[in-house]
Amino acid sequence: MVTATSSLPQAEIPAGRKKKTQLTREKIRAAWIFLTPMILVLLAVAAWPLIRTIWLGFTDARLSVPGSGQWIGFENYLFWLDYGDGEGEWIGLLADPTWWRAVWNTVYFTVIAVSIETLLGLLVALVLNAQFAGRGFVRAAILVPWAIPTIVSAKMWDWMLNDQFGILNDMFMTLGLISAPIAWTSSPDTAMAAVIMVDVWKTTPFMALLILAGMQMLPGDVYEAAKVDGIHPVKVFFKVTLPLIKPAIMVAVIFRMLDSLRIFDLIYVLTPNNAQTVTMSVYARQHLFDFDNFAYGSAASTLLFLIIAGITIVYIYAGRVNLSGDK
């Protein structure tokens, strides 16, 4: 009897129809009871705070002023400040050059860092996909940067990038790449490069492992056939491997992109107070807590949320990325 029903798990069986539906109903009720605690927690820590953040963006809330939080509409976003003498100026987030600077910094960082990580990740995945003794060791080794807390990796690199005592300047000078020590993290010219350097080191492993997982699901017979036909490995890579692992790369890229767009920790520790590396998250938090501008910071957070949501939707739609795992 068990096997008879198991082959048709969802189908209705006329004889036991009544019992089946009752069982199903009971099961669905149990399902909702099981789901309720999780849904309640997610409502409390995700949905409600998000709604409140969006709401606060339309108020004049300040942490230093108890009871503040009057509705002021779109004034945090864009507002014509009339001087009363016919003159005036646009103020608010959308008219704030520092905000647009932060948007630009974030996008710039994301595009450069994720591109490098994708290329390096692909290379590392290709190497790890080859058969060699000690493969397990290398795979474990590349997991180390991934596991190290971002704050710790920022501090480790901060020390390596130190202008006077850093090993990186020492290395580059020995190799003759630079003639004088560079103040990597404090100089406006190199601060972003330093951030990208650390981010690439820390997150390429994740990229590589996702791409590797995609590679390992490829059918081996395709490669056998290509080998028999004597097709050059480089051609095989571009004509066979790359198209087949494209879905895996797309998924890895979107995960990394979403992460980069909200980058905060690394910049907060590695290049604080550097206008060249203030990203949207850093900007929002500064206004929320450092500049006593809770409402304005909330508005910035809301915009960041909208930007990320927008990019995600476009990307998933354009790339037809199958995130659901359903076939």
Binding site: A46, W48, P49, L258, R262, R285, F305
Partner: peptide, 18 residues
Amino acid sequence: LSVSMFPQIAVLAGLFEM
């Protein structure tokens, strides 16, 4: 799935208040 893509900063103000 979409919650897992939330930027943390988007809920920071609301969570702080809570």
